[in-house]
Each structure stands twice: as structure tokens, then as C-alpha cells.
Amino acid sequence: MTILVIEDDVKTGDYLRKGLLESGYNADLARNGTDGLHMALEHDYELLILDVMLPGMDGWQVLAEVRRVCDVPVIFLTARDQVDDRIRGLRLGADDYLVKPFSFTELVLRIRTLLRRGAAREPDTFELADLRLDPTRRKVMRGGLTIVLTNKEFLLLHLLLKRQGEALSRTMIASEVWDMNFDSDTNVVDVAIKRLRAKVDAPFEHKLIHTVRSIGYMLAEQP
């Protein structure tokens, strides 16, 4: 497994690379944000360790550009210790945030945790027939045409594709997509399915979203 360290402080960067090598990882080192971004996009790293205050491009900019392309795990390792900084890093898509000075043992434990999660990361794309959903880029296409969905419609289709071939109850769908307990007097799921069908199924001859009587809905080539 190869980890990319993007750190401009020479002593810290060398220390991190040496420690990672001794811990059984391959490690590359970039000493500014511009080089770090180039390396992150050119190579398939298992994880990035990223400082915030970097020459060329700061860590915020590097992470924003990386997240436009891939979902590689990222740990911020920085002296920026304000709560607002932590929130900003996590909102930009960082998986963890560790403040300097730091314990190298703790860093390695956090790396191992993220890499274990990474082993179960979902596929880059979900496909069924001519329907394709890209979670990272939040794109949906069918028959070569781009389909524009609202946020909830995207989450609903994502769920149906992840569980394709399974009959999903309205209660389960409401819990996963709306984070709510399903109320039998509320037709939020049925309305959302109707709108999703209008975009994903109606323009096409072959229908993929099916009603499962007395249960809920299913995404499949055949009901």
C-alpha cells in the first residue's frame, strides 16, 4: 500500500515518510501543494496525508481538486487546531483531521482504520441495463443521455441501484433516504418514486423501477 504525504516542513515530511516505511507502507512525499495534487491525480494512492498550510496550493484547494476526481481517503495533519478549521476540512471531504503536534502511533491507527473502511468502499459506478450512476461525480446517465436529478432523487436511485433486485419497503426507503420513520399517512416515498420514474423510466421503452405489491419498490430488469 502506498501513501502520499503532502507536507512542506522538511523535518516533519521526512519523519512521516520514514515512520510509514518502518510501519510497512510505501510512502511518497510532496513538499508543496501543486506537486502534491499532481502526484495524487497521476497515481493510485491508498491514502493521502495532507497539511493545510502549503506553498503553491493550500491543503483546502488540494482536497477540493482531489474530490472532483476520486474518493481516496484523506487525513488532514495540520497545526490548524480551530474547530472551524476541522469543520471546513471535513465538509470539503476529508476523512479525518489530526492536529500537530501529534502521536505517530495514533496516526498509524487512524490510517489502519481508514484503510479497513476502504476495503469495503462501494464501487465507482452502479449499473443496470443502460442505466449508470456515478456516486463520486453525482452523475446519472441512461442510454447515453444525462439525467438531472434532485438530491433526494439521486439518493433514492442510489439506494435502489445498491439494492437492485431486492424488494425494498417504503419504511426502509424512508429511513435510508429521508432519515425518518415512515408514517403510513405520508406518501413521500410514492411521490418521489413517481418523479424518479418520470425521469429514469418514462422516456425509455424498457422500465426498470417496479412496484412490489404490499411491500414497496424494486429496481430490476424484470420485476
Rank of each mutant, 00 (worst) to 15 (best):
I3Y: 04
I3R: 03
I3A: 01
L4S: 10
V5I: 10
D8A: 05
D9W: 07
V10D: 03
K11F: 06
T12C: 00
G13W: 12
G13T: 13
L16D: 01
R17G: 01
G19C: 07
G19F: 11
L20P: 02
L21T: 15
S23M: 09
N26L: 14
D28G: 06
L29Y: 13
T34L: 09
L37V: 08
M39Y: 09
L41H: 05
D44A: 11
Y45R: 03
E46K: 14
L47R: 02
I49L: 05
D51A: 05
V52N: 01
V62F: 01
A64K: 12
A64P: 04
E65F: 12
R68F: 06
V69A: 00
V72G: 00
V74F: 00
I75L: 00
T78C: 00
A79G: 05
R80Q: 08
D81Q: 05
D84S: 09
D84P: 11
D84K: 14
I87V: 15
R88H: 12
R91W: 13
L92C: 05
G93F: 10
D95G: 04
Y97R: 11
L98P: 02
L98K: 04
F102T: 11
S103R: 06
R110C: 03
R112A: 02
T113K: 00
L114W: 02
L115G: 04
L115D: 01
A119W: 13
A120Y: 13
P123Q: 08
D124R: 13
E127F: 07
A129L: 12
D130Q: 14
L131E: 02
R142C: 03
L145C: 08
L145S: 08
T146N: 06
T150H: 02
N151E: 12
E153R: 01
E166T: 14
A167V: 13
A167N: 11
S169Q: 09
S169I: 14
T171N: 01
V177H: 01
V177L: 04
W178P: 01
D179Y: 11
M180V: 15
N181W: 05
N181D: 05
F182V: 04
D190I: 04
A192P: 03
A192R: 00
R195N: 04
L196I: 14
A198M: 13
D201R: 13
H206I: 15
L208M: 08
T211W: 02
T211Y: 02
T211I: 08
R213V: 07
G216W: 14
Y217A: 01
P223K: 11
